Every structure is written in C-alpha cells, then in structure tokens.
Amino acid sequence: MIDSQLSRAEDPELAVQVQRLHQLKVCTRWLGVIISWLVVIPFVTWQLQEEIALMRDHFTLAAVRYALIFNPISAIAISWCLGLTTAVLLWQSGNILFGFSSRYRHQLEKQVRRIRRRGKSHVFWRWVIGSKNQ
C-alpha cells in the first residue's frame, strides 16, 4: 500500500491513466454485453417463435416455463445474457459504491506501466496514455 501511494505521489499522471484504463474496461465490458444481447436474442426469438405466438394469446408463467424447459439451448442463451449483464452491473456498482480495491488498483497500475513500456505499439496506448506524446 505504501509503495502504491509513493508511486502515485511520484507520478501524478498515473492516477489519470489508471482512471482511463478503468473507463476503457467498463466500456469494453458493456460492449460485450450489448454484442451478446444483439447476437443471442435474435437466435432465441427465432427458436421460440411458436411459444411466443402462444404466449401472445395466453401469457402465463406455465407457458414461459414450458418454453424454457423444452428449449434448453434457448434457456441457456437467455441465462447467458442475463448472467453477463448482472455480473457487469454488480462489478461496476461495487466499483462506484466502494471504490477500487487495492488489488484491482495495483493491477490497473501494473497494466498502465506495461502499456507505457510497450509504447505506441500497444493497442490501448491511444486511449490510456492519450495524445501527449503523439
């Protein structure tokens, strides 16, 4: 903990770059969630089109249960999307409410240093380090 405080005191740009890297991680996770929903849901609706037509007439929990039990691939696909969305929501909420854990902050600082060492050839250089040295 003392080492990380000293490194932040010696390098004030590190905190800004750590925050940028965290924002990049948040955006990529939400992009993954959106892509997952956009890819999976059309497949699920296609597989469940007969059940959806029945549910439009008589929507009950039994109809939903029937649709999911007798279409396990669709149930797994919906569970995947819901689970991924819930995981990202909980991760981001924890970071907002409680801040970064010391372990997570250390990992981010380590990644920022790795990006700095690699230079402009690193994929995240432009987003994390910025246009200062370009």
Rank of each mutant, 00 (worst) to 15 (best):
A9N: 13
C27A: 15
L38Y: 06
L31V: 12
Q134N: 03
W80C: 13
Q47G: 06
F59M: 05
K25C: 00
I129T: 06
L61G: 12
V128T: 02
R65M: 08
Q17M: 06
K25P: 00
Q92H: 10
G32S: 13
R65Y: 02
E109L: 10
P42M: 04
K120E: 04
A53Y: 04
L90M: 11
V39L: 02
S93G: 14
Q107H: 07
W127Y: 10
L24I: 08
T60S: 08
Q107W: 01
I78K: 03
R113Y: 11
S121N: 06
S74R: 01
I41D: 05
I2F: 00
V128M: 02
L68D: 00
E13R: 15
S102G: 08
L61M: 12
V128E: 01
S131R: 15
W30E: 13
P42T: 10
V123C: 12
I76Y: 02
A75N: 04
F124A: 14
M55I: 14
H122Y: 08
P72F: 00
Q92F: 05
M1I: 14
Y66R: 13
G119L: 05
L14D: 05
P72G: 05
Q134Y: 07
V128K: 02
I34K: 10
T85P: 09
C81Q: 04
L21W: 04
R114E: 06
E13F: 09
F70I: 06
V39Q: 08
R116L: 07
L61Y: 04
K120F: 06
D57K: 15
A63M: 07
L89D: 06
V64P: 02
I69K: 11
L6M: 07
Q111V: 13
S121C: 04
Q134I: 08
A75G: 13
I69A: 04
G99C: 09
K120T: 13
R103P: 00
V123R: 02
E10Q: 12
S79W: 03
R126W: 03
V18E: 12
E10R: 14
M1C: 13
E109D: 09
T86R: 10
